[in-house]
Simulated scan of single mutants.
Amino acid sequence: MITENLEQVRKNIDEACRMAGRDPKEVTLIAVSKTKPVSMLKEAYDAGARCFGENKVQEIMDKHPQLPEDIQWHMIGHLQRNKVKYIVDKVSMIHSVDSLRLAQTIEQEAAKHNVCVPVLLEVNVAQEESKFGLKMDKVLPLIETIADFPHIKVQGLMTIAPYVENAEDNRDFFRQLKKLSVDIEAKNINNVSMSVLSMGMTGDYQVAVQEGATMVRVGTGIFGERNYVR
């Protein structure tokens, strides 16, 4: 099932790229493996998946030693500052930086491990009270504050769009994030890139790709419905 699902998601990404006049190579598929057992991740790995997204630090710590070293782990969930030290040298990217204090903690812990951590700033484009993330007007000031941190590399933006029945309802949110990234890129801030736009999940990733996503985070579409009974 997982192999077939992965193939279908890739086809859908290719089709969305074709409609938008984009190269499918511009889009990285992140298999969101939260709550899923290692056996399912291995199946996805065998089907070619190399980027996995987790919401919880503990799951990264549990799964990391059990799986091949060439996997790129993405921390996509809300990250508590007291947990940063456990994953700062294990993840290839943190998608959910939403405060100066969190960025400072990542900088401090990365310095201890002598690594430079690629990060994305999480933006609450839809301004949902239930979601984490920066308001649109707070993104640039934070970037300007942390741009010179030597152990952090700001590489772009991330958003979690609202859950909707019709993916078209989220198109405008994706457009707003794309525009924000273009505006920030134009400022040519040292040590800051806007090359990554992490947006779109199982229900709306095709629309996100059409609007410029370079990373899509697909869980249910690959692994099936989540199972929260551990």
Rank of each mutant, 00 (worst) to 15 (best):
V9F: 04
L180Q: 02
A44H: 12
I160N: 10
K83V: 02
M75K: 07
D204R: 10
Q206R: 09
M93L: 14
M199C: 06
E165Q: 14
I30R: 02
T28W: 00
G133C: 09
N12H: 12
I30W: 02
S195I: 07
Q210D: 07
E144C: 00
K138T: 08
K11L: 10
M158T: 09
E211D: 06
D204I: 06
N114M: 09
L197V: 12
S96F: 06
K178V: 02
V57I: 00
V218P: 07
W73M: 02
I146Y: 04
G200L: 05
N114T: 04
K90D: 12
I184L: 05
P68I: 00
N191Q: 14
G203K: 05
F173R: 03
I152E: 07
N124F: 02
Q8S: 14
G200E: 04
F223R: 04
N190C: 11
A20S: 12
E128G: 07
Y205D: 05
D183C: 03
G156C: 12
R22P: 08
V97Q: 11
I189D: 13
T220Y: 03
L140H: 08
G219I: 03
M136D: 09
T3A: 15
Y228E: 10
L41C: 07
G53F: 01
E225T: 13
V57Q: 11
V91Q: 08
G48A: 15
N227S: 11
K83T: 05
A47G: 15
V209N: 09
